[in-house]
């Protein structure tokens, strides 16, 4: 599936909840719980995204031309958001990742998590994901 197709799939998944924010957040929390954890050896200081209330770890690797992300967060809602980002961006060509606009976050009504406060590390994480992808483009 392309990045756009995965985004569409997520939008449909969240559509079920309509205005029911509690349902939406319960789903997000479930997603957070299901995120495959980053390998413990990767939970290092240099992989931590600092300056946020919840800590986020990100590891990026290039496998057969695709970027593979693994990530973790210590707050479950942040982790749910991280899971969504990994699902959308992981296993794609670096060129496609760099171009992704991630509009689905707005569409599913979770844009507040991308506000430029220091509360969660999401914006910094997306920047890091794209920067890592860019670094893989030779």
């Amino acid at each position: 599936m392309t990045i756009q197709e995965i985004e569409k799939e997520i939008v449909e998944e969240f559509d079920i909840f309509g205005d029911d924010w509690e349902g939406k957040y319960e789903h997000l929390i479930d997603l957070g719980k299901s995120l495959p954890l980053i390998k413990e050896e990767f939970k290092t200081e240099d992989r931590i995204i600092k300056g946020c209330q919840s800590r986020v770890w990100l590891n990026s690797e290039l496998k057969e031309g695709n970027v593979v992300y693994t990530a973790d967060a210590d707050a479950i809602i942040t982790k749910g958001m991280v899971a969504l980002m990994v699902r959308v961006l992981s296993n794609h060509k670096p060129e496609d990742i760099v171009k992704a606009d991630l509009k689905f976050v707005d569409t599913i009504g979770l844009k507040e998590h991308l506000s430029p406060t220091r509360a969660n590390g999401l914006v910094s994480m997306i920047n890091k994901m794209k920067a890592d992808a860019l670094a893989f483009i030779k």
Binding site: Q53, D74, A75, I76, I77, T78, N120
Partner: peptide
Amino acid sequence: HPFDVGTL
């Protein structure tokens, strides 16, 4: 995590 409690 306090962040989750505060967010909700």
